[in-house]
């Protein structure tokens, strides 16, 4: 990948990131933070990639540790966000 392509992706992502959350109400700050937190658990993909080609004991140990931590971040993050949002949902149904 060329540096220019990476820079383009990076800059456009910044703007998208700014835009999508610009008008969020305070009520949703906590779930949104938690959801964004789960999304950066995608580092799991990176952890798997490095673990896959690790050969030395040190590299293997560190990368497997990274896989564990990233999984906790991603899976736990999405589950806890869902639990929070589940409570918001109930009201609409009962009215």
């Amino acid at each position: 990948m060329t540096t220019m392509a990476i820079l383009t992706i990076f800059l456009l992502s910044i703007f998208v990131g700014f835009e999508v959350v610009a008008k969020v109400s305070t009520t949703l700050h906590t779930p949104l933070m938690s959801g964004a937190n789960a999304i950066h658990g995608i580092i799991l993909v990176g952890a798997i990639l490095v673990a896959d080609k690790a050969t030395s004991t040190l590299e293997t140990t560190l990368s497997i540790l990274a896989v564990v931590l990233a999984t906790i971040n991603m899976v736990g993050g999405f589950v806890v966000t869902d639990r929070m949002l589940e409570m918001f949902k109930g009201k609409g149904g009962k009215k």
């Binding site: 992706i9 999508v20 610009a22 964004a36």
Partner: peptide
């Protein structure tokens, strides 16, 4: 790691997280 997905996802969280921090 030359992974577009990680760049996009990470930047999204970085940018939206910054805005969210300011709003908070």
């Amino acid at each position: 790691l030359q992974s577009t997905l990680l760049i996009v996802a990470g930047t999204l969280v970085g940018a939206s997280g910054t805005i969210l921090t300011r709003l908070m």
